[in-house]
């Protein structure tokens, strides 16, 4: 320990342990170690250290480790993937979201909405379950009749929608707009889809900005 050895000897020891010491220097190191006790002890201690560190036993991960990781994985990732897919296929997304969110409730409303209802235009007459546009009267605006019949003797200046009902046209009666007659659940759904689609764009735009 008292003797001062060349600094390079310790450097050689480490290079030797890394298996990077050239043959020539290895011989030099070995010769030196034979003569120098301090370096011999130093080298022995280094090798002992490595042996001790390598003697530590391998320990395994605790049980349920994988389950623990899996339960902590973010679920949103998958959702985002689906959203991205839909962004590339906007029409499918529109249909899918529509059927998922609206389909159920619309069908329910179809089954439940069995009451007679109509657009309250000022000059129509109601007889039982029949809405009458009397002769000589002009209804300006759209007219919707649900679960009832419509008899047009006068004139409707607008679109007429009939849900689950019959339309009777008198000789003098006329409708200037489109006529929609709906009498099946599927048609009701389709009608609702068409009329909702205008709002859809806005609905999705809103949805995306929330993400």
């Amino acid at each position: 320990m008292m003797k001062t050895c060349p600094d390079k000897m310790v450097q050689y020891m480490h290079e030797y342990l890394d298996e990077e010491l050239p043959q020539e220097q290895e011989t030099e190191l070995k010769l030196h170690i034979q003569q120098c006790e301090a370096c011999r002890i130093h080298f022995h201690e280094l090798k002992k250290t490595i042996a001790l560190v390598q003697s530590t036993s391998h320990i395994s991960a605790p049980s349920n480790f994988t389950e623990g990781v899996m339960s902590r994985l973010p679920k949103e990732k998958k959702k985002i993937g689906i959203q991205r897919w839909f962004q590339r296929h906007p029409l499918i997304m529109a249909a899918a979201v529509f059927f998922l969110l609206m389909g159920g409730s619309l069908l329910t409303s179809w089954n439940n909405g069995s009451e007679f209802a109509f657009t309250a235009q000022p000059n129509v007459v109601v007889e039982g379950q029949t809405v009458i546009v009397p002769e000589g009267e002009i209804v300006s605006g759209d007219l919707l009749v649900r679960n009832g019949d419509l008899r047009v003797e006068g004139e409707v200046q607008g679109d007429v929608t009939l849900i689950n009902g019959q339309r009777y046209m008198a000789g003098a009666g006329s409708i200037t707009g489109d006529i929609d007659e709906i009498d099946q659940a599927f048609e009701w759904l389709w009608y609702s889809m068409k009329s909702s689609f205008k709002n859809m764009g806005q609905f999705f735009g809103l949805n995306e900005s929330e993400e």
Binding site: H58, I59, S60, A61, P62, F65, T66, V69, M70
Partner: peptide, 10 residues
């Protein structure tokens, strides 16, 4: 995870 859990844990 199964393949690497022991090594990473160690």
């Amino acid at each position: 995870v199964e393949i690497y859990k022991d090594k990473v844990f160690h």
